[in-house]
Design a protein around this nucleic acid. Sequence first.
DNA 1: GTACAAGTTGAAGTTAACTTCAAGTCAATG
DNA 2: CATTGACTTGAAGTTAACTTCAACTTGTAC
Lengths: 154, 154
Amino acid sequence: MLYTVGEMAKKLDMPTSTLRYYDKEGLLPFVERSGGGMRMFRDEDIEWLKVIGCLKKAGMKLTDIKRFIEMAMAGDETISQRLDLIAAQRKEVEAQIQAMNQTLATLKFKEWYYTTAKQDGSTDRVRNMPSEQIPPEFWQVRAELKGDTVNQSK
Amino acid sequence: MLYTVGEMAKKLDMPTSTLRYYDKEGLLPFVERSGGGMRMFRDEDIEWLKVIGCLKKAGMKLTDIKRFIEMAMAGDETISQRLDLIAAQRKEVEAQIQAMNQTLATLKFKEWYYTTAKQDGSTDRVRNMPSEQIPPEFWQVRAELKGDTVNQSK
DNA sequence: GTACAAGTTGAAGTTAACTTCAAGTCAATG
DNA sequence: CATTGACTTGAAGTTAACTTCAACTTGTAC
C-alpha cells in the first residue's frame, strides 16, 4: 500500500508540513517519489516515522535523529553504533524521568502547602510551620527549597 | 543577607543574563534595588527562584509562571487560585512521566532489538522474528510500532 | 580619587522546529 | 479535457527563551 503525504499525515495525526520539513531535513531518505515528483510512503515507513517520534519524545534533536536514520540506511555494519545511540538515549530518558519525579515531589509539597493555607485562609501558619508539624514526606523537598542542608543518608 | 545579580546567579548556577531576563519579563517583582539601581536579592528570594525553576521544569511557560508570581504577590485572596494552578500542573507532570515511561519502553525494545541484531551480525532475523520468540514485555511496544492491533485488556 | 570589575539598559541576534505563503504542478473525476 | 483538490518547491515568518552587544553607571579596593 502506498500513501501520499496527506494520507500519511492523517495516519500519524500530524501536519503535512511537518512531514515535508522532516523530508527536507533529510530524516526521511526512505520515501520514494512518483513519476510526477510526489512523495510515496510505504507501510513500513510508518514504523520509521514512529521511531523518529519516539526519539524526538526522548529529547533528541532532529540532526541527531537524522544521523541515526542514516546509520540505519547504511545497513548492518552500523548495528553496534545504533545500539550505542539507543542505549545512551535510554539512559537519558531514565534520567529525565528521575528529574521529573523530583519536580513532581516539589509540586506535591506545594499542593499540600496551598491546601493547608486554604484551610487557614492564610499562608502565615504553613509558611512558618516547624518540621514536626509537616508530613515527613515533604521534609526533604522543603529543605531543598529553603536551601537548608538536610541529613544525608550515609 | 543581600546579593547582587552575579552572586545570586552563582548561588543558583545560572547565567546573570537569565536572571535579568526574568526580571525584565516581570517574574521577579520581589527583587529590590539599591540606591544606584542595582538589583538586591534577599535570601528568601532564592525560594521564589527555585519555585520558578520547578514550574519551568514542569513545562510551564514564563507568562504563566509570571501570573502565578503575581498571584502570590497579591496575597492571601489568591490562595485558592494558586492551589488550582499547582494541582493542575502536578497532574500535567504525572501525565508527562507516563508518556516518558512509554517512550522508555520503546527505547528498551529497540535496545533489545539491536542487541539481538548485533549478536546475529544482521537485523534480518530479529526484524522478521515471530512474537513467540520475542520477550513478552516487548509484545505491546512492537505491535504499536508496527501499527498492528493488539489484544486490548477488557 | 582613580581604577576597574561588575552592574545597568535597550536593542539586536540566536536557535530549533516548525508553519505559512506564493506560485506553480499533478492526478482523479465527470 | 477541464476542473479541482492535493501535491510540489523555496523563501520567509513565527515562537519561546534566552544571549550578546554597546554604551554607560555603580561600588569597592587601594
